[in-house]
């Protein structure tokens, strides 16, 4: 199930894209960015920043009014969404907006049926996808009766079954408690380690800081910054402009800066480590 291709090569290229919704609302203004194979990135921003609009350009659900988007070598405005779906798995925010089958397994196989896979091919693919997110035990249950965390996993399995190269997830931890949320994030990390490119859409900075390698911060349809998370979180001014709040740990680190703590600290273990070093140095 490991996708082929060179790591580091660009799989999504967004080039000077502007987009307006019917009625004239300008959701994206001159956006350019790229995603490389094997990356784990976040598109982050407040409500109405354009992050979901940008993500929907990756699999062709939206076409740019100006500019172009190329995904896995295909121009999105010249390729059908169904075709791009083989390359890009898009997990929507609300699982209830896509689950409709009477069993989990059927749900996971729905995408494969759409892509005309034979029964003999789709069964093992579905099995593998269910194993990846650990829902094999739920295969015969009706999806609607599952917990939100499990429903979300079913939606992830349902797009993973088609073995996409890129996985896009829109606010995947909404409504999950801390435990389920951490479990989901470690599943995503494992998927990324096995070679999948992951694009996370989120406004939750703690999540972004702790799990993602690179962050694209958006505000009012523009990209404010596109950099490693360390660099992004050292600039509180920038975060304020994006209507985002730095993770608590980073805020503490900023206040402790006079004592010698680095302001680009964004996980508890990093902070503890630095304090230990400082204490060790002092005594």
């Amino acid at each position: 199930m490991t996708p082929g291709g060179e790591p580091g090569e660009s799989v999504v290229t967004v080039d000077g894209v502007s987009f307006s919704y019917e009625g004239g609302f300008e959701a994206l203004v001159g956006v350019s960015m790229r995603v490389r194979r094997g990356e784990y990135i976040a598109i982050a921003g407040g409500n109405g920043s354009g992050k979901t609009t940008l993500a929907k350009h990756i699999n062709g659900l939206l076409h740019p009014s100006v500019g172009r988007v190329t995904t896995c070598g295909m121009r999105t405005d010249e390729t059908s969404v169904a075709n791009l779906a083989r390359k890009v798995g898009y997990v929507f925010q609300n699982p209830d907006h896509q689950l409709f089958c009477t069993t989990v397994e059927e749900e996971v196989r729905f995408g494969l049926e759409n892509m005309d896979f034979e029964e003999s091919e789709s069964a093992p693919k579905a099995q593998a996808a269910m194993e990846l997110v650990d829902i094999v035990a739920l295969r015969d249950r009706p999806p609607f009766t599952l917990s939100l965390g499990d429903r979300r996993k079913v939606t992830i399995a349902s797009v993973l079954a088609a073995e996409p190269e890129i996985l896009v997830l829109d606010e995947p931890t909404t409504g999950l408690d801390h435990h389920d949320s951490e479990h989901l994030m470690s599943t995503l990390r494992a998927l990324n380690r096995s070679g999948r490119t992951i694009v996370l859409i989120s406004h939750d900075m703690r999540l972004v800081a702790e799990h993602v390698d690179r962050a694209v911060l958006m505000a009012a349809g523009r990209i404010l910054v596109d950099a490693d998370v360390g660099a992004v979180f050292s600039d509180l001014e920038l975060l304020r402009e994006a209507k985002l709040v730095a993770p608590p740990i980073t805020q503490v680190a900023h206040r402790l800066a006079p004592l010698g703590v680095s302001p680009s600290t964004f996980t508890p273990s990093q902070l503890v480590q630095q304090i230990e070093v400082l204490r060790g140095g002092g005594g």
Binding site: K56, N59, L61, S80, V81, A82, A85, R86, V88, G89, Y90, F92, N94, H97, Q98, F110, G111, N114, M115, S158, V159, A162
Partner: peptide, 16 residues
Amino acid sequence: SVMESIIDAQRARGME
């Protein structure tokens, strides 16, 4: 909006 979101979600799974 829910309807549009559902249609998008199913199209993203390859439904035509």
